[in-house]
């Protein structure tokens, strides 16, 4: 059996804000093998971004309480010193953010920003780092890289900036890349370019990828495994093909049915998930989805469903799963 690159066990990330405890992530477990792509799917407030921030230890320590284990190549990142974490960040695990407009520093040229990333983690001179930066820019498909390296972020379009972000995140050849909605702010044709680029480079560098997205289309196109998050918990995970073919959790089903499809009928009623996401500081006792679930029974409101492990590493957290599993 393969040793996972990243294994998260029962991760809890709670924010203590005043007297309230916001349970942003509440006991999730996932594992990612080297070179594999895992998609974390969910809507706003599901805890998918907080999961990524927890892995990177980027959350404000004063109000954050994190429990569980985040094993990166067998070492628990939650037990590491800040120095060790800094060594991992950027070099072994790097991150791309949603907002390409604000994630680059406007005061430096993009060449400087990429070389900076090189020099933080390896002992090379400026010239070598700069050449590396130009090489990376070419790799991410920026034309006339030698000239563009001398430009500032504001001189580039959103798609170009996202390419620069990808260049920065891959320049140290990390083993894991966390991409937090990297294409959400982009236009469709640009999104297609960027997705293609990420897939191509991840393969080339043999980088494992955790893709955080709300777009099931993106999941279907680039991931092998997926985990569906709702209100801080993973309600279902498994291989993408399996989950799409036969979703077990009512939330997954609802999510898939509520997207208008290009091959769907005109003005046909869409499936909806009524209601809104629960308040993370006052979660219900039972299943967090029970209030919005059309199949919910009494048991759902009283008892939180344990994660069931099925064949093919499929997992679902539901008392009454759909799609032909006996309950």
């Amino acid at each position: 059996m393969q040793i996972p690159l990243l294994q998260i066990n029962q991760l809890q990330t709670h924010f203590h804000i005043g007297k309230r405890v916001v349970k942003a992530v509440d006991g999730i477990s996932i594992s990612v093998n080297p070179g594999e792509t895992m998609a974390l799917v969910g809507e706003s407030g599901s805890g998918k971004s907080v999961t990524a921030m927890s892995i990177m230890r980027l959350l404000p320590e004063a109000i954050t309480k994190t429990q569980g284990e985040i094993l990166f190549e067998g070492r628990d990142m939650l037990k590491m010193s800040m120095e060790e974490i800094r060594d991992i960040r950027g070099k072994h695990i790097s991150m791309i953010f949603q907002e390409p407009m604000t994630s680059l520093n406007p005061a430096y040229t993009i060449g400087e920003q990429i070389s900076e990333a090189v020099r933080v983690h390896s002992n090379v001179d400026k010239k070598t780092a700069w050449n590396k930066a130009v090489e990376m820019l070419e790799l991410v498909g920026i034309p006339a890289a030698v000239q563009r390296a001398k430009e500032y972020p504001h001189q580039m379009s959103g798609g170009m900036r996202q390419r620069v972000m990808i260049a920065i995140s891959l320049v140290c050849n990390p083993r894991l890349l966390l991409a937090d909605e990297p294409t959400t702010a982009l236009d469709v044709t640009i999104q297609a370019q960027i997705l293609d680029l990420i897939i191509k480079l991840a393969k080339e560098f043999n980088t494992a990828l955790i893709m955080i997205t709300h777009d099931l289309g993106v999941v279907a196109e680039i991931a092998q495994n997926m985990a569906v998050m709702y209100a801080g918990r993973i309600v279902e995970q498994g291989r993408v093909a399996d989950v799409f073919a036969n979703p077990h959790h009512p939330y997954t089903v609802g999510l898939m049915d509520s997207i208008p499809r290009l091959d769907g009928g005109k003005k046909q009623r869409l499936h909806t998930i009524e209601g809104v996401v629960p308040d993370l500081s006052a979660l219900p006792m039972g299943c967090t989805f029970a209030d919005r679930c059309e199949y919910a029974k009494e048991k759902c409101r009283e008892e939180f469903p344990a994660v069931r492990v099925l064949a093919n590493a499929r997992q679902v957290a539901c008392h009454y799963p759909l799609g032909g599993i006996e309950s």
Binding site: V188, A192, D215, V219
Partner: peptide, 18 residues
Amino acid sequence: ISAIPQPHPGAKKNRIIL
């Protein structure tokens, strides 16, 4: 039309990348 990621894993794609 071809650029929109469609939720059909494994479907054959003839995506036109501009």
